[in-house]
Design a protein around this nucleic acid. Structure first.
Lengths: 146, 146
DNA sequence: GTTTCTGCAAAGCCTTTGCATATCG
DNA sequence: CGATATGCAAAGGCTTTGCAGAAAC
């Protein structure tokens, strides 16, 4: 999906929600889409301020909720209870591996795991709406670690 | 593992940490061990108060940290950022399925998923220290839902 | 022109912390 | 007895909210 198409989805979401296209909402959306990181509200705020965009954290939080609702971005809560956000639309599905030594976030995806978890849910009469799969990992340093 | 053995692990943890065995710590530990639910600090607090045990939330939080550190209980953060706790020692490993309609928490376990995720980590030079795997599900109501 | 937004500051909520008193070993 | 724990209340940190002025359609 190209950038224009993605931006169109954003406009559609605003229309569906019957809300206005403001400079702040636009700036927040493109700021997230142009990033490949997993950032907190604060990070996004600082990034916008650095770009000389006038915006408040209140507006960012309010906008993030809308973007999550329309599946344009993904909200992650990793361990410490602080919410992180990443682009979702136009990106393939993936889960996360978090290095507990460096904090580095690595994306991974495994079709067989996806299938098996679907099966576990179905077995119990449920279907999966969304899932959280995070591996907290440490680098393997030598043989005894394996 | 029987109750006495589990309680022994608790005493060992206190000794390892060189901290005292107080009525509060004991009450908090057994309260969690006797429950099969996934409860918040507040729930545990209310349960203890109902049993006429004098304890403060500060002490509960402080004790929970110790119990988590020694792998006697497990801390879960599900969606809303509120921490939940469940017994861990003496219980087989499992992950969680959360019904988004009723809030019901269902435990599941799948060896193959465990193996595959281990493989994903190893492939990248990491080993898993812990993991979070939560499926947010909805009941299947009819054929079109499948 | 209205309706909807924004920014600000205040309030909320869960969790942590400082401190004086009480308790364990 | 000395060291550690507890409870209280206050402080912290992220997030949400009420409200008056500002902006979109």
């Amino acid at each position: 999906m190209d950038k224009q198409h993605i931006y169109k989805k954003f406009e559609d979401a605003l229309k569906a929600e019957k809300i206005k296209l403001t400079p702040q909402r636009q700036a927040i959306f493109t700021n997230i889409m142009d990033s490949d990181e997993h950032r907190e509200c604060d990070d996004i705020y600082n990034s916008l301020v650095q770009d000389d965009i006038t915006v408040s954290k209140a507006t960012i939080y309010r906008t993030l909720d809308i973007l999550v609702k329309y599946d344009l971005i993904r909200k992650l809560v990793i361990g410490d209870g602080k919410a992180k956000y990443e682009p979702k639309i136009g990106k393939p599905h993936h889960d996360h591996m978090i290095c507990i030594e460096t904090g580095k976030i690595i994306e991974f995806d495994n079709d067989e795991i996806e299938r098996l978890q679907e099966e576990e849910a179905k077995k119990r009469g449920y279907k999966i709406i969304k899932h959280v799969h995070q591996l907290f990992v440490k680098p393997i340093k030598d043989a005894k670690d394996i």
